[in-house]
Simulated assay, not measured.
Amino acid sequence: MAVPATTGQLRERVEDMEIGDYIVWKYDSTITGYIFGGSTSGYTEIAVTGHPLGSMPAKYFWYGIKVDKGLLISDRIVSHTVTWDWLNTNKFVEGFPLTISGISGAVRSLSGGVLYADANGNKSNADLGYGAFPSMNEWDKYIIKFPFNKISTGNTLDDVFHYLTNYTWCRETPIYGTWKDSAGNTSSSASSSHRIGRGSNTRTQWSDLNYAGSSNSSATWGFRPVFEYKEV
């Protein structure tokens, strides 16, 4: 099993989790939908590159990692070939209210920024290696800046979040206009029909900011679920 390479513990209950801990996150279409914890017997583990949306198993699992108070992020893309439009129609962009294993919250997408950032956190139309604007987007805050001391020895950030081979659909529409790559070359021009994706890069502590049409369906673009809940 592709267990997240964190120094945290595998927990059975969300209520017992601390930052860096992880929990089995299951989906059973034959019974109750999402479930936290419990046995994985009879469930198919989703590959770290995701599974095609159109042929998801009836019962499958992956892991959720606690990154902040009241916030779990999937350790991988769960479904790929899913469009941003499908996620939005089914309320998985801004948040679908759900109670999972007695915990009330919402399943949604990550925020990922709207443009590149410069060294001061301001907007830049070129990739300067400082992440995305605004700098408090969840991809940079929780994935790229996941505490180094919570990654197991001998492993990398990709062994925790499995992001290097695919893009994660994020919530935002990019700022319109011409974008440039890290060499300063004109890359392409964003429009109102595009949506942000993060991931798919070989650099250790930085992951690419990109965009695609909201109706784009690709095996390298997918849904990474977030569970946001009120922690008492």
Rank of each mutant, 00 (worst) to 15 (best):
S207Q: 15
F161A: 06
M136G: 14
V160G: 05
R76C: 11
W179N: 05
D75A: 12
C170I: 09
K123L: 02
L10W: 09
G42P: 08
Y176F: 10
W139D: 13
S101Y: 08
E15M: 05
I143S: 01
L53C: 11
P134I: 15
N120S: 15
D127W: 04
K145C: 15
G121E: 09
G113A: 00
M1G: 09
I144L: 11
I100P: 04
E228Y: 00
E12I: 04
L10C: 06
I77Y: 00
L10T: 06
T99P: 05
G33I: 04
S74L: 09
I65Y: 03
N137R: 02
V14E: 07
S214V: 03
P147H: 14
D75Y: 06
T153S: 14
D158H: 02
M136K: 11
F146M: 11
W84V: 09
W206S: 14
H51Y: 12
H80A: 01
G37S: 04
V114M: 10
R198G: 07
Y167N: 13
R76P: 00
N166C: 07
T83E: 05
L209M: 14
F96N: 03
G102T: 07
F148R: 15
G37D: 06
I143N: 00
L157V: 05
N185T: 07
A2F: 06
S111W: 03
I46Q: 05
V114F: 02
W139I: 12
I31P: 00
G213T: 11
I175S: 07
A5I: 11
N155K: 15
R198L: 12
A2T: 13
Y176N: 04
E94A: 08
A47K: 06
N185F: 05
T99E: 12
Y27K: 04
V107S: 00
H80S: 04
G42A: 11
L157Y: 05
K180C: 02
H80L: 00
G177S: 11
G70S: 01
T99V: 10
F96A: 01
G33N: 08
N185V: 09
V160Y: 03
S187T: 01
V114G: 02
G54R: 14
S29W: 01
G213P: 01
D181V: 04
I143M: 09
D68T: 08
L71M: 04
Q205E: 12
T30L: 12
G95K: 11
D16M: 10
W25M: 15
Y167E: 07
R198V: 13
N88Q: 03
P134K: 15
G184H: 10
D181S: 01
D208A: 10
E18H: 13
I65P: 04
V78P: 02
N122C: 05
T178I: 07
P134H: 13
